[in-house]
Design a protein around this nucleic acid. Structure first.
Lengths: 156, 156
DNA sequence: ACAAAAAACAGAATATTATTCTGAATATGC
DNA sequence: GCATATTCAGAATAATATTCTGTTTTTTGT
C-alpha cells in the first residue's frame, strides 16, 4: 500500500506555523498574511486537513482554571515486549492520561497524566493500573513547576 | 495581590470540552450545541479568553508530515536547586524543546523535544546543552512508538 | 522541448457567520 | 426587598466562508 505523497512547499509550512499559533485565525486573515486569495487559501487548508497534515484544532486550556493542578509522569516496566498492546490501549483509554509512549529500554512505557491532586492519582492507580497484569514496576514522577509546555512543533 | 475570581459553571466546562475537540467550530455551531444564542456564546467565550481559562487555539500538526520523526525525553540533573532558572529558560528557548518541567527529586528537569532525527539531537546537544554550566548528568530516552498524544485535559 | 494534464490560483457571487447593540431576564450583594 | 451586576436573546449589520468559473502556472509523459 502506497501512502499518498505528501509534499509541502514553503506556503504550506507558513500556513502550519500560523495555524499552530492561532487556529482560530480567519481564512481571510490567513490569506492576507500570505498574500493569497481566500479561496486559494481555503483550498490549501482543506488539502492539508485531508492529507492528515493537520490533525485537528484544539483550544489550549489553563489546567489551573479547571483544578487540574497535578502533572505526573509515570514509568512503567512490563513483562512482555510486544504482546502488551492491550496494556498500552488500556492506559490510553484513561481520560486523565494525556500521553502514552513506548520508549526504548526494556519494555518501558512513559505516560503523562494530568489530575486534580494526589487523591485522584491514588484512586487511578487503584482502579485502573492494578488491572493491568503485565506490569513489573512503576515509578511516578511529580512535576513541581512547568517552565514550558507547548504543543507546537518547530517548523523550519 | 488577589487573583481575579474564576468560577466556571457547567456551560463553561461544556464550551471548553467542545473547543478542545474542535477549536475551529463556528460560534453559531457552538451556540446551537449548547442551546444558546450566538451573541451570548460569544460573550462567554471572550470572558474565558480574558480570564485566561482559554490560553489560545492551536492546530495539531502531524509530526511525520513535516519530518519530525524523533521524539525524545531528556532528564537533566543540575547542581543548584533554585538558582538554575537561567538553565531552565535556556532550555525553554530552544524551538525543538516542547516542554520543560521541574520535577521532584534532586534538582531535576524533564524535557520533551521533537526533532528530525538523531543527527539533529546530537547537534542540539553540542550547540545548546553544552553551554549550560550547572548540568551534572543527562539521560536521553527515545520514544519508539506513541500510543496516545493529546493536549486535551479531561474535564469532568 | 513540447503538448497534454493536473494543480494552484484569483475574482465574483452567494451563503453563512461574526459582531454589535439594546433591552429583558436572572442572579447577587447588602 | 431593592439596587447592581451579570447573563442572555433578538435584530441589524459587518465580515467571513464557501462555491463556482475561468485563467495561469506547474507538472508529467514522451
Amino acid at each position: 500500500m502506497q501512502r499518498t505523497e505528501i509534499n509541502l512547499d514553503e506556503t504550506d509550512l507558513a500556513i502550519l506555523r500560523l495555524l499552530q499559533e492561532d487556529a482560530r485565525m480567519t481564512n481571510v486573515a490567513l490569506a492576507a498574511k500570505l498574500k493569497m486569495a481566500p479561496s486559494a487559501m481555503l483550498e490549501r487548508v482543506r488539502k492539508l486537513e485531508e492529507k492528515g497534515v493537520i490533525r485537528g484544532y484544539s483550544a489550549v486550556v489553563n489546567p489551573l482554571a479547571i483544578d487540574k493542578d497535578l502533572l505526573v509522569f509515570i514509568f512503567i516496566k512490563t513483562k512482555d515486549s510486544f504482546a502488551d498492546d492491550k496494556s498500552a490501549r488500556a492506559l490510553a483509554a484513561i481520560p486523565q492520561v494525556m500521553e502514552v509512549h513506548h520508549i526504548a529500554g526494556d519494555d518501558c512505557y512513559l505516560i503523562k497524566a494530568r489530575l486534580s491532586g494526589p487523591t485522584e492519582l491514588m484512586e487511578l492507580k487503584r482502579s485502573r493500573f492494578s488491572k493491568i497484569s503485565n506490569i513489573i514496576s512503576m515509578r511516578t514522577t511529580i512535576v513541581l513547576e512547568t517552565v514550558k509546555e507547548s504543543s507546537h512543533i518547530s517548523i523550519d
